[in-house]
């Protein structure tokens, strides 16, 4: 009995290997062509992942990545014992949720509106105009915001004075109560236009017969938008939602680093800005890496949960 099993186990891999080699001989050109890409991913994306181990080591700038002593989860315990990190985590969650709730639907709405513009020149002009802010850096945007909101020389002050206002102008850039709104609104202003590209591309692929059929059935513009355009965009929306949810723990380092100040830090400090201070300014690389790994792990969990929900609701929309 044992002998028979041995023959089988020895025989199967041989057949499999033969088949594989035959296949490779036939398709080797394709595999050779994909090799540089695979090597790129392995070398620049997977091998550096070894660096994540410093989240579990007592790493100092002087240590080697390979011989820093292992400390288990000490860096995570240290991280979560810091009230500043808890504050950053809380801010991170709220800012991300606000950006998701208010920022995610905006490009969809904008795309639907642009799609309804019938004059092609106006349509192109609007499309270009809404995309342009995406190419402006946050530093420049902060400069613009400063020029608008400055209580001493800002455009709003000038306008208010022109209208006869004599009192002080509140500075929205320095008020905790308004700063989260400033973050979300400026984020939408900058990124919504770029977000429309994917949706407009998807809209252009919708079969025009569907609109004609809907029109024949008596559907108006609003009903066509709702039942044809939006319905056809469902898969695209869900896929982009996955990406956005996966980025939930990244609340926008560039933006917040550029536009925040000490007066609003208690509401604006996020994990990335905290990690920057801890890692690059204080050289606490292990704790900073632990924070980064925590972000990634939560991001991945959120993607899996979203995917699971999507699979339950609409199996075709799930990505895994």
């Amino acid at each position: 009995m044992q002998t028979v099993r041995k023959e089988n186990t020895l025989g199967r891999p041989a057949a499999w290997l033969k088949e594989f080699l035959q296949y490779m001989r036939k398709e080797y050109m394709l595999y050779l062509m994909i090799l540089p890409g695979v090597l790129y991913i392995v070398i620049f994306k997977y091998l550096p992942m070894y660096g994540i181990t410093i989240a579990f080591r007592d790493y100092k700038v002087s240590s080697s990545l390979f011989n820093a002593p292992w400390v288990g989860f000490d860096n995570f315990v240290n991280l979560f014992s810091r009230s500043a990190f808890i504050r950053a985590l809380t801010n991170n969650i709220f800012i991300s949720i606000y950006k998701l709730i208010f920022g995610f639907p905006f490009p969809i709405i904008l795309s639907l509106l642009i799609n309804e513009v019938r004059n092609s020149k106006v349509k192109k002009f609007v499309q270009t105009s809404v995309i342009l802010p995406d190419f402006v850096s946050w530093i420049v945007i902060y400069g613009l915001m400063y020029a608008i909101f400055s209580p001493s020389s800002g455009a709003i002050k000038g306008l208010a004075e022109m209208l006869g206002h004599k009192g002080k102008i509140p500075n929205v850039l320095t008020q905790k109560e308004t700063f989260k709104s400033v973050i979300v609104i400026s984020h939408i202003w900058k990124s919504a236009g770029m977000g429309t590209i994917v949706y407009l591309a998807a809209i252009s692929g919708i079969d025009q017969d569907l609109y004609e059929a809907a029109a024949i059935d008596g559907a108006g513009r609003w009903q066509q938008m709702w039942h044809v355009t939006l319905a056809s965009l469902r898969s695209t929306i869900i896929v982009l939602l996955f990406f956005r949810v996966g980025q939930m723990m990244y609340a926008g380092f560039d933006q917040i680093f550029a536009i925040s100040n000490d007066l609003v830090m208690s509401t604006a400090d996020i994990i990335d800005t905290y990690v920057y201070r801890l890692g690059l300014e204080q050289r606490k690389f292990s704790i900073a890496t632990a924070a980064g790994l925590f972000q990634s792990a939560i991001g991945m969990a959120l993607v899996l949960i979203t995917n699971y929900i999507a699979r339950k609701v609409d199996p075709d929309s799930a990505i895994m």
Binding site: L263, S266, R277
Partner: peptide, 18 residues
């Protein structure tokens, strides 16, 4: 704890000033 302590003092100072 230097970074956390300094940040807190900076925030306290500007909040009291404003």
């Amino acid at each position: 704890y230097g970074a956390d302590m300094d940040q807190l003092i900076n925030e306290m100072y500007v909040e009291m000033l404003a």
